[in-house]
């Protein structure tokens, strides 16, 4: 079952998901594994906590590795089951690049995720992309530990229909 695999993977990225609210002190949150069980399966919170809302990239790349594809498979499954949701895919880069190149790189990463989700059956018109380049890091140290978390594409689901 893809979902159960995704749940295991999701647990490993849950700490990141918890940082997504852009709290100034994000980065060292404790993980409450029981909490995710309280979200309705058709809620954006469940999507973030249990499906996994983000995939990570290596330096200057937009290739999806096996782990990323597994998460995106789970996202596609969830989106197939929750057809009232649309998704905005945010592409991000780490701070180790110039501003405009990183905008282009973020666009490329978001597009890679979009293309993969479409290839897994998600309708094109439910997905849109945006790049933030290096403008919205979630982790703020200046070492690879943080940069690796910032090189990401985040799928933001919205029942209202994200434009």
């Amino acid at each position: 079952m893809r979902i159960s695999l995704a749940l295991i993977l999701a647990a490993s990225v849950f700490a990141l998901a918890a940082c997504n609210s852009q709290l100034p002190n994000s980065g060292s949150d404790t993980v409450d594994l029981n909490k995710s069980g309280n979200f309705a399966q058709n809620s954006p919170e469940f999507f973030v906590a249990s499906v996994g809302d983000r995939v990570l990239f290596t330096v200057d790349q937009s290739t999806l590795n096996d782990e990323a594809r597994s998460i995106l498979d789970a996202q596609a499954t969830w989106l197939a089951q929750n057809v009232e949701f649309k998704a905005l895919i945010e592409g991000h880069a780490d701070e180790q690049g110039t501003r405009e190149y990183n905008l282009a790189l973020g666009a490329r990463r978001a597009s890679a995720v979009q293309a993969y989700l479409v290839s897994r059956g998600v309708a094109d018109n439910r997905l849109s992309t945006i790049t933030y380049g290096k403008e919205r890091p979630i982790e703020i140290c200046s070492t690879e530990a943080c940069w690796s978390q910032n090189r990401r594409a985040v799928t933001v689901v919205n029942a209202g229909g994200t434009s």
């Binding site: 937009s62 905008l103 282009a104 666009a107 490329r108 978001a110 979009q114």
Partner: peptide, 9 residues
């Protein structure tokens, strides 16, 4: 200027 369409800038 540059524009990104379908991931290509």
């Amino acid at each position: 200027m540059s524009a990104s369409l379908s991931g290509n800038t």
